[in-house]
Each structure stands twice: as structure tokens, then as C-alpha cells.
Design a protein around this nucleic acid. Structure first.
Lengths: 307, 307
DNA sequence: ATTTGTATTTGACAAATGTTAAACAGCATG
DNA sequence: CATGCTGTTTAACATTTGTCAAATACAAAT
């Protein structure tokens, strides 16, 4: 073990610093080339070699200002990207979001609410670990029967809490109980009350913005009704139409209300992508969000497409 | 420029973090593969990507103790190496020496004397830059007509001073003036006096150990005499025989005396390699050195070969 | 001494990366 | 509008690195 680490370090030194080829290193160290290759890989796994990428944070200040003005939103973070590839834009955006939110919570005693979705999942995934035992993380709604990891609110809250070394409070109740009676019973549990109290006192809510696909997903599980027709997107299971009017599609749900979100000290939405444009505009019009984090191509669409 | 950095960062992210191939990145970013390759190289040059190698310092404590005991020397640093390749041993040794000496001088107000030789040059080369404006660096002897960079004492002192962000005091006089009169004249100059004072008050002297080859080098320049016969090595131009008895081969030289070195608060020798074994043993026997930095293979030879 | 399991080397091949030269595009300048 | 300048792409090729399977070496256990 000790000896192996010595070898990894030496190989890494000769490879990365002295720019020798693996073949040369094999000769120097009297090993086969394949072993050198393995040592170099292991050196990274063992953290003997660390490859760090410095994020020059490239921000489009003019777009940020324009978004704040056009949509009457407090803050906007528009992340510069060199090309409009969707996956790359998403990656850069969630990384920027991670950096932004890290700065908000890193010496904090904050109550942090997490919604769901692929963007939020990616955001958590890209968050660099920190240790802030005084923060608390919790989901914004009860559980659903979705199998995709990015819809499991408790799991997302847990994984974010894990990243920031914080406590987590789970929502041990369903988003939508089968009937009103069950709903009332759940509301009497201490589990619900704990979350209810937290929802009424959120410091930072981190939410994604769903587009019309979400309505299909919800419809399949909880049924369709006429209100679904007008909805074009959601923020944390609160649906809205193109004008930003909130239409509560379902009743008797166990989740943070739209007022909980409005009353949160800061509600941050992370969203980007062509197919989110309309939904993001609707979401901004609801005035639930006070900070939007997106990429420059999405920003351009928000500003110059007509809806 | 700004845009290029954005590209470098993105390419680096996709390459090092997301493990995409350069070909895939080219497709994502809509560039040719060659451009991606260039971006990745530039990212390293521009310090957007930093590759750091953590030195797990592997030390052979038992050898260190044995060397202290056998040669009556205060400190020994024996650097573990996985194989006995000479160039690798030298590299690891000078790196360890750099780390050791860094810790001695980094918040210091120290007068640091530097000798010459390939080992010292490599040591300086591997030293990670720091900024310690209160340190002073100076050579241990006047200039010679050698053309090799590693024999230019002033240049070595300058480059080390540069690495540590310290002041440098040059020796603007020859190691061995052509005749006694010149020698006396040089001794009267303020340049000499400045160095003379420094030599009498050295905090840390960093020296190499020369083997018999050095006697040839000196002989060719300054002539041979019967004293050369007994010399088997040198410390900073002070020759010694196999028993560690100092034999001053040349007179009227302008350099720190052996007593200057003995009176230094700490005299550190860096030396390793098969062909240095005998010289190192002689050097230790002179009792001029109080710290020896070497590798485990050399240490083994010092301890178990008979001379 | 034999067996067994693990790790390394060898050799062959596939994939990725580096390198070069020629062709081409974009752009400022005269 | 032509002219050079700069940087990129294309295409071909060399080098380096990754990967796999079989052979070998070696150590621990029986």
C-alpha cells in the first residue's frame, strides 16, 4: 500500500510534471507500460493527483439587467456559455447555480427547501461538498410513486444535505393522499407539522421550472381535470398559465403552498433550455421567484422571443 | 480572449470531469478535434486547469536514525523511492530537500548560502515558488570561468532568490584571482566585504557534495598539486580525504571558509547517487555538515558499504 | 511440494491524442 | 476590391494510451 503510493506519486511526477510518456516511465521505474497506466489511474482515484478546474465565472451582466427589468424579478444570474449545446448549457448553469448558492449558505444557519426535477438533481450533483452542520435541508412536498430518482423529493433533499454536511428533514407523507380523510390524518402527524413549520419559515428555496411535460406526468398519476388545460408549467407542483396566474390543479395536497414560496426569504429558480422558454416566462410572471439562474442562450430567448 | 477562456473551461470540464473524449467534445462544442486539443493544452498553460501532485512524504526513519548514529550527524532526511533509478532518486531527493528547506525559510529572515553543482541546480529547479522578501540569498564563493550553468554560483543564488522572492547578494569577484596581489585588492572591495560579513553569519548553507570528478574539474582550471592526490571529494570547494580530513588544495581563494560553514546555524548537504557514496562518507566525517538529505538507496550504501 | 489466488508482464490490437501541411474563412487595411 | 494576416478546418499520419487475453511470477496456505 505504502509502496504503491510511492510508485503512484513517482509515476505522476514523471508524467504530469516531467512530461515523460508512459513508456519512458515504465523503463525508468522498471515496470510494464500497462502497470504505469494503472498507477496513473490509481493516482487520481487515490487523490495523489488532483485535477482542478478553475471556474472563471463568465457572466452576462447586460442580460441579467434586462431580465430583471423585463420581468420585474429581483436577481438574475446569466451564465456565459460558448455554444448553445443544451447539455453543456445545463451543465454550466447548474455549476454556476451551485457556486451562487454555496456562497449563500456556506456560513449559514439556513433553512433550505429543495424541489425536484432533472435540473435540481444535476445542480446537487455538481455541488462541491462543504460542511455546514447548522443548515437544514428539506423537500417542498410529500412523496409520490415516481420511480425516477429526480422526482424523489426526500432523496434529493437527502443528497443535497449530504453534499453540504447539513441535517435533513424528510417528508414522511405522500404529496397527494388517496382521500380527504387520509389527508387530514397526515396533517395531524408530527412529521407533517415539522415540515409545515419549516415551510412557513424558508430561508432559501431552490426550485426548478417544469414545462408542459410535467402536466402529463402529473395527469397520469393524479388524473386530469379542466384546469390542466390552461397550465403551461409548474414551480414545485404549483401550476400556472401563460400569464403567470397560478392554477391549483389538485386539492388536498401536502406541500409547501405558493405563499410559502413567496414568503421565503429567497426563492431561486434554476432553469434553462429551449423547451423551457415559455414555462420560464410564465414562472417569472407568477412573481413567486425572486432569483433566476439560467444560461445566456435561454436568457436571449426569454428576452427576444414573443409569448 | 474572454470567449477563449470560456471555451477552455468548458472543454476542460467535459474532458477531465465528465470524461468525454476530445472527439465528443468537438461535437458538443461544434469545433474540430484539433481545436479541442489545443484548448485543453491552453487551459493548462492559462492555469484554468491545474494538475497538482500531492507528495505523500515517504521517509525512512530507521535509515535516518542509523545515519545520525553512524556518522555523528545531527539530522538526516532519507527519502523513500520505489526503485533505484538514479535520475528518479535524484528527483525525489531534491524535491524532498525543497520541501524541507521551504519549511525552514518560509517565514524567515534568514541568510541563506547556496553552493553549486547539478544537485543544487536541480534542487532550485524543483523548489515551489514562495515569496519571502526578508530572506537573503548569496553564493559561497566567487565566480569561475566554467560555462556550465550549474557551476555559476551567482546565477544559482539569483535563481534561488527568485524562487523564494528574496534579495540576492552577488559575489562580484573571482573564486581564485590570478595572483596574490589581485586577491588582496579584491578583499578590500566593498563587494567582497559584504559577502565576507554574510559568510560569517550564515543561517542556512545549502551545499552539494562533489566526488573525485570535481578534483579533475578544478585541476584543469586551477592546476594540480600533490594535495589533489588525497582528495576524494569537496563541500563547496573545500576538499577532503577519505577520513574526512580537510585538505585545502588551493590558497588565496575568495570563498566562505570551512569554519564559516561549520559555524553556520545549519549546513545542509543534498547528495545522492552511487558514484557519490565515498564522497558523502568523507563529507560526513569532516563534521562540516549537520544535515544530510539523500535517498534510501544511497542511505543503504552509506550504511552497508565499506570504505 | 503442491495448490490457489493475485498481480504483473507480454503481445496484439483498438482507441484516443498529437502533429503537420494544405485549403479555407473571416477580417482589417490599404 | 484586392491583400495579407490570423486562426480554423480537413485530412493524413505518427505517437501515445487503453484494453483484453494468455502466459508467467510470486506469495500464502495447505
Amino acid at each position: 500500500m505504502e509502496f504503491q503510493k510511492k510508485q503512484m506519486q513517482e509515476a505522476a511526477l514523471l508524467y504530469y510534471e516531467k512530461k515523460h510518456t508512459q513508456h519512458e516511465i515504465a523503463q525508468i521505474m522498471n515496470l510494464s507500460r500497462q502497470t504505469v497506466s494503472k498507477l496513473l489511474n490509481d493516482a487520481i482515484k487515490e487523490n495523489i493527483v488532483e485535477i482542478k478546474i478553475n471556474n472563471p465565472e463568465i457572466t452576462c451582466k447586460d442580460f441579467e439587467q434586462a431580465i430583471c427589468d423585463k420581468f420585474n424579478v429581483k436577481n438574475a444570474v446569466v451564465c456565459g456559455v460558448s455554444t448553445d449545446d443544451e447539455s453543456l448549457c445545463r451543465l454550466m448553469t447548474v455549476k454556476r447555480a451551485a457556486a451562487y448558492i454555496k456562497s449563500l449558505i456556506e456560513n449559514g444557519n439556513k433553512k433550505i427547501a429543495i424541489s425536484w426535477g432533472r435540473t435540481i438533481q444535476a445542480f446537487i450533483n455538481e455541488f462541491d461538498s462543504i460542511n455546514t452542520p447548522d443548515n437544514v435541508v428539506f423537500p417542498l412536498f410529500g412523496a409520490t410513486d415516481q420511480e425516477q430518482a429526480y422526482f424523489l423529493s426526500n432523496e434529493l433533499a437527502r443528497s443535497f444535505a449530504d453534499k453540504i454536511g447539513a441535517k435533513v428533514k424528510y417528508a414522511w407523507f405522500p404529496y397527494k393522499p388517496d382521500n380527504i380523510d387520509d389527508c387530514k390524518l397526515f396533517k395531524k402527524t408530527s412529521y407533517y407539522k415539522k415540515l409545515y413549520d419549516l415551510w412557513n419559515d424558508i430561508d432559501i428555496a431552490v426550485v426548478g421550472i417544469g414545462n408542459s411535460e410535467i402536466i402529463q406526468v402529473f395527469g397520469k398519476i393524479f388524473g386530469y381535470n379542466e384546469k390542466c388545460m390552461s397550465a403551461i408549467g409548474d414551480i414545485s407542483a404549483h401550476f400556472f398559465d401563460g400569464n403567470g396566474k397560478v392554477v391549483e390543479v389538485y386539492e388536498n395536497t401536502l406541500c409547501a403552498s405558493k405563499d410559502n414560496l413567496k414568503n421565503a426569504k429567497q426563492t431561486i429558480a434554476i432553469a434553462c433550455g429551449e423547451n423551457k422558454t415559455e414555462a420560464i416566462i410564465g414562472a417569472l410572471r407568477t412573481q413567486i421567484i425572486d432569483t433566476l439562474i439560467t444560461d445566456e442562450y435561454t436568457a436571449k430567448r426569454l428576452l427576444y422571443n414573443n409569448f
